[in-house]
Design a protein around this nucleic acid. Sequence first.
DNA 1: CTAGATATGTGTATGATCTAAACTAATTCG
DNA 2: CGAATTAGTTTAGATCATACACATATCTAG
Lengths: 263, 263
Amino acid sequence: MSERRPQSDMTREVELLWELRGTARRGPKPKLSREAVIRAAVTVADAEGLEGVSMQRVAGELGFTTMSLYRHVDSKEDLLVLMVDAAMAQDPPEPRADADWRAGIGEWVAGVHGIYRRHPWVVFAAVFGPPLGPNGLRWMEAALRELVRSGLNTGEAVQVLMTISSVVRDTCRIEFDMRRAAEAAGATLAEHERAHALSLSRVVAPERFPTIAAMLDDGVMAAGPGEATTPTEDMSFSLERILDGVELYVERQGRAPAPPAPR
Amino acid sequence: MSERRPQSDMTREVELLWELRGTARRGPKPKLSREAVIRAAVTVADAEGLEGVSMQRVAGELGFTTMSLYRHVDSKEDLLVLMVDAAMAQDPPEPRADADWRAGIGEWVAGVHGIYRRHPWVVFAAVFGPPLGPNGLRWMEAALRELVRSGLNTGEAVQVLMTISSVVRDTCRIEFDMRRAAEAAGATLAEHERAHALSLSRVVAPERFPTIAAMLDDGVMAAGPGEATTPTEDMSFSLERILDGVELYVERQGRAPAPPAPR
DNA sequence: CTAGATATGTGTATGATCTAAACTAATTCG
DNA sequence: CGAATTAGTTTAGATCATACACATATCTAG
């Protein structure tokens, strides 16, 4: 009935990301490659954000026609999926010799955060679902490896990883978005936060929104000039709570974290 | 310099959501209203998802021309912001008499989850940043009210709320996305999960991805026929860990949760 | 070595989409 | 009443993804 290919079929996505396809032998040698297309697209996104990434723009970057891209990528949506995995090409942190899984997760989060800072568009990409590409899976493996060390089983570790990933991504989303808005208005992030808190306080009636009003009074959204806590700095509070919760759970279950590797 | 209006200026967004604008008195009586436009857009989104929401489609729903919408809404992006707030019109849970803040958060999460189930497109809307509209703020207030009861200060409560919101939204995103893909393939969610696990297992080499491989062996992604745990059911594990972490933190700080309201 | 098969990149075209701008008609204030 | 103002319409433009037919380069079977 429906001729339309489903928007995101995981099986198809896996094949896409792992290039499980026969390579052609007949015809002219390709001057362009999927790799080059992805690289160009990432370059454009790094420079101009996701809005800048159009098929024409990417093709122009490469000096080819728009339609040439479709020889190497089935659709723009596919290209986006590939871009996101490509952005994670950096190596995730190695396992720690001291088996300190909390520190390990800290390094992992710092690594992801670094990727997001280098490629801010990644957090805005409409790519849902778990990672499926080679790079995404390497990062997933690195995080799960630390989490199971804490004493969680694999299913629990996946849940906790999803939580951590969500927090990091969402926090960066908010920070990057606010930073962009601030820059567009020609202000610093802190100035923008102040302005925002002010405009909020105009509609937050203390009777209807007592807690939010208290929060604004406490200057939560707008730190003083010197302090200037960015959302990403605040993030560590949530992360510590999550890891505390994990630790407590493992203890209560009578399990124990894995000992350091013997030398 | 830049003539372009910033994509998301919070101050502007607050004004938008709270309709801080003078009402006209001259000219013909409006037959359309912002309210009607939003309602129609939400109807379309409920029925066909966000992809179905085009200005022409919404206008058609109302029996007006496409351009008529622009008298009541500045841009499609604005409409989206308004739609998201409109979807949260339902009342958040009341404060509990027993002051059990963990149960309170549980009710809040259930409420948000209900909204997402009724309006699945909300979790896919490209609306970043904290809630700013009347309904979004009511829900935020309800959650913060419970969280500060636990003994957190307002800043900490905001952090924890962001974490909880992220988890709920991301979990629903994944579930809805997978459900859509499953339906498109004419399968159930469980079948689809199995198929996905299978295709993953083809690329997950146990040497490179030992933990993920173990996870697949444990059947984490594909529960047995009878069990069929949905992502949203698994979510509660993460939530309990977060709340455990909060409780532990409050204790360690020597603070205490608020007692039940005196009668 | 040649001829058909096949893949590459190009040119052209289509349909969707958002939205700017000029226009018509209704309404109200002075 | 008449000028000002506003609602909805018409028309048109810009951008975008992508389908399709084509010329051309390369490989492989005979």
